[in-house]
């Protein structure tokens, strides 16, 4: 039982880590792009609508795929006034519940987003501004994909907290 859970948790976590490490570079791309737009406009009065729209396209992709990678790297925020005083197994139980709930929410939002993307795809939605980036449904399609990846991360976290519950207590076995 434990090895199976371990395998699933590690596999899921690995997928999220790989996707996240690639997506992370969108942040650097964003810095360079916005700086380029600012400087080229100031120095050469050069700018295009498409490059300006690309700014928030990059931010959107980073924000979406950052969710799962952030959790993968332990960036969740919680109020730990009571949590910090709880025994380890109770903490693991709370983490298990949290991970399951996160998984459910992520799947529900994934499902909700699909209709949203279809609506955009059915009319070949583009930018309302001439010269803007076309195929807006591609950006919108990043939403269900990112929430599905978030669900995978939640599976990994479920597995990790299950392992923490199933494994013998560190105090009793390791000494």
């Amino acid at each position: 039982m434990i090895p199976v859970i371990e395998k699933i948790a590690n596999g899921a976590s690995g997928i999220v880590r790989h996707i996240g490490r690639i997506a992370a570079w969108s942040g650097l791309a964003l810095v360079l792009l916005v700086a380029f737009n600012v400087l080229s406009r100031y120095l050469f009065s050069y700018g295009t609508v498409a490059l300006q729209e690309a700014e928030w396209h990059l931010m959107a992709v980073g924000a979406l795929f950052g969710m799962s990678y952030g959790l993968n790297q332990g960036a969740e925020v919680r109020v730990d006034i009571l949590y910090a005083r709880m025994p380890a197994r109770l903490q693991a139980l709370i983490n298990l519940i949290s991970a399951l709930l996160m998984c459910a929410v992520a799947l529900i939002i994934t499902w909700l987003c699909i209709a949203y993307v279809q609506s955009s795809y059915s009319i070949n939605e583009g930018s309302p501004d001439p010269g803007g980036l076309g195929h807006r449904y591609v950006l919108k399609a990043a939403m269900p994909v990112a929430f599905a990846v978030l669900a995978i991360q939640a599976v990994a976290m479920t597995g990790e907290s299950l392992l923490a519950l199933l494994r013998p207590r560190p105090g009793t076995s390791s000494s």
């Binding site: 009065s45 609508v49 300006q52 309302p128 501004d129 001439p130 010269g131």
Partner: peptide, 24 residues
Amino acid sequence: KDLKMRIPGLAGKVYAALGVDVKL
């Protein structure tokens, strides 16, 4: 020419053809 203007939509495209740098 090289005027930086906040102007959305079709009018932005017209201005751009006259050398305006369109800013959203």
